[in-house]
Write a protein that binds this DNA or RNA. Structure first.
Length: 634
DNA sequence: AAAAAAC
């Protein structure tokens, strides 16, 4: 993942002819930005944009108003970074990092920033914005946040790599989390992927390993590996992405990072392990397999990180995670250092997670005006049978009007693997190059799909929730929830694939009768991110039973607050100095591909549930896809 | 109820 989707996205699309760039060397640019959470106290969410962009208020006019109470949980913050970095003169580096950075340098100039910073080119990040980010830190003896990487003393080699990657100054999550982690404290952190989160846990781990390095385990004699750090992720692709990122940070430090996940050659992974491993990035199943085969021991684990921690502890994953963390040979909490990261963190999941922690610091870092206000969220009532044609209609508009730009990617989420395949086929046959990704594909197909999508070769990807979390896919301009998820958290993660790194994006949801239980929480979410809500959805929200709200304190699941605070004090708040007047929202940052505003179809977008929402065959698409292809795929 | 995650 990287900070600057927009920059890197441009890279890939603009330079598709350039030689292959290894994944771990892509995206190595700085972004800057923040996301937000409600503070959980009486201040409504607020935000400040960098000064060159003026202030942005999530809720114009709402600064200081009490919008949410602690009890109902904060709003989720969607990270929005600003893809600006300063371009230092290139140092003479022999490796690929150098070339990649060079490419980024070029891009920097050509980058079109939809939000048009007044600063113009060469700018560099405006870190003033960081002074105004709402941060909640909760716990005892919380280490002070750092303003620079230098003052954190991460070590010479790592610092050099950080510079090479053009990370000029830490992002908010890094400012707060890194000192906490370096101090050896356990941490539960709420921060959106794309916010520099990977770096936030990688830097302290790499630094710590270098500092405590002993030649003791230099040679593996027994064939058993003893990693000192373990990073667990919920999907293979995310493991791979973190591995790539971490390798970049550990360049020439001697810190060895190995990735292990299913669906790929285990013997190959074993061979990598045999070369030595300090940091193991893994998915749960493969890790358990390797442990049970006696090839990995967790006995010497000093750092344990769970990425997307809320997912890792949800119903499907919890038993496996508990097995790894509590019933293998992992050192106990307090002996090892444990860090949990996630964007959404329901309080009951926090409660489970706290079993793994010892005297931890809870951290919610964010900026109001989070990406959800850069993501234009739209909900259309579309019955299942009309969805395909409605999708075609939208895609056709995008194509004809170029509303999303030349290299824009569209990510379409569906409910099941079968539907993913079916829709992929349907789209392909009807003139829209699409590729599907889901867990029934063999790993190589999954990787190929992702690569094809990222590169723009297949600008439409149909996905299940395998792609909803953590993946940093540059240039996704439009996320379409062809089928809405049942869980509002999944919705948040899905739409978070766009609107990243300062680029605006749009998210369109097809709401059908089946989604009634989601109405209430969806309306709340959209309200909080200042979105326009169609009347019919309002009505549904009022009449429907709140589904997932029932299990929470309130109706929000996002709990960007420490669940401990409901029973204890110990809170430390850091507030901005200027939230009060932050209200010059710039309407011009609207999405360059704002379908709702620009597309001829906008009249279709607020249909009454009872109205004829969409009539197939009513539009001349041109692509020849009027021909409905009935296949065995359905 | 689906998806993900080992062989």
């Amino acid at each position: 993942m990287s900070w600057s989707d927009d920059v890197t996205g441009s890279t890939q699309s603009a330079t598709r002819v350039v030689p292959y760039v290894p994944p771990h060397l892509r995206n190595s640019v700085v972004n800057n930005g923040a996301h937000s959470f409600d503070n959980g106290n009486s201040y409504g969410s607020y935000s400040t944009e960098s000064t060159q962009h003026g202030f942005r208020s999530n809720r114009p006019g709402s600064a200081g108003s009490s919008r949410s109470s602690r009890g109902r949980g904060g709003r989720r913050g969607q990270w929005r970074g600003r893809g600006r970095k300063s371009l230092g003169s290139s140092r003479s580096l022999s490796q690929e990092i150098f070339e990649v950075c060079e490419k980024f340098d070029d891009l920097e100039v050509s980058e079109e920033d939809g939000n048009g910073g007044g600063g113009g080119g060469g700018g560099g990040i405006n870190f003033d914005a960081y002074e105004d980010i709402p941060v909640e830190a909760n716990g005892t003896d919380i280490p002070t946040a750092a303003n620079t990487f230098v003052e954190i003393c991460l070590g010479e080699r790592l610092s050099e790599n950080i510079k090479r990657c053009k990370y000029v100054r830490p992002t908010p999550i890094q400012r707060h989390a890194i000192p906490i982690a370096v101090a050896g404290r356990d941490l539960m952190a709420c921060a959106q992927t794309g916010s520099g989160k990977t770096a936030a846990f990688c830097f302290p781990i790499i630094s710590g390993i270098i500092k405590s390095r002993s030649p003791r385990f230099g040679g593996q004699t027994t064939g058993v590996c003893f990693p000192s750090a373990l990073i667990l992720t919920p999907t293979r692709e995310l493991a791979s992405q973190i591995h790539d990122e971490a390798k970049k940070f550990a360049y020439q430090t001697g810190v060895k990072i190995v990735v292990a996940y299913g669906g790929a050659s285990i013997s190959h992974q074993f061979r990598n392990l045999e070369k030595g491993v300090d940091i193991l990035v893994a998915t749960p199943g493969r890790l358990v397999d390797m442990i049970e085969r006696g090839r990995i021991s967790l006995r010497l684990i000093k750092y344990l990180t769970l990425d997307e921690a809320d997912r890792m502890l949800d119903m499907g994953f919890e038993p496996q995670i508990r097995k790894i963390v509590e019933r293998m040979d992992m050192p106990k909490p307090g002996v090892r250092q444990t860090m949990l990261f996630s964007a959404t963190f329901p309080s009951e999941i926090q409660r489970l997670a706290s079993d793994f922690l010892s005297n931890y610091v809870f951290l919610a870092v964010g900026r109001v005006g989070s990406s959800t206000d850069l993501i234009a969220q739209k909900v259309d009532y579309v019955e299942d049978m009309d969805k395909r044609h409605y999708l075609m209609h939208i895609l056709h508009d995008q194509k004809v009007n170029g509303t999303c730009g030349k290299h824009a990617l569209t990510l379409v989420f569906v409910e099941t693997k079968k539907r993913a395949d079916a829709l992929e086929y349907w789209l392909s046959v009807n003139g829209f190059p699409a590729i599907a990704i889901h867990g029934d594909k063999v790993q190589m197909e999954r990787e190929r799909a992702l690569k094809s999508f990222k590169s723009g070769a297949t600008p439409i990807m149909v996905a299940t929730d395998v792609a909803s979390r953590g993946l940093d896919i540059p240039n996704v301009a439009h996320v379409i929830n062809f089928d809405l998820p049942r869980d509002i958290d999944d919705y948040v993660h899905r739409i978070g694939r766009t609107g990243r790194a300062g680029k605006s994006g749009i998210a369109t949801a097809f709401f059908s009768e089946k989604n009634l239980p989601l109405a209430k929480v969806l309306v709340e979410l959209m309200n909080e991110s200042n979105q326009e809500i169609p009347d019919w959805l309002h009505q549904y929200a009022e009449t429907s039973i709140s589904s997932s709200g029932g299990q929470r304190h309130g109706s929000s699941k996002f709990a960007a607050y420490d669940y401990r605070s409901t029973t204890s004090g110990n809170e430390n708040y850091y507030y901005s100095s200027s939230y009060g007047g932050a209200d010059s929202f710039d309407p011009n940052v609207a999405s360059p591909c704002d379908v709702s505003g620009a597309a001829p179809s906008s009249s279709q977008h607020h249909l009454s549930p009872n109205a004829e929402p969409y009539a197939a065959g009513q539009y001349a698409y041109g692509g020849g896809y009027e021909t409905v292809v009935a296949t065995g795929w359905d």
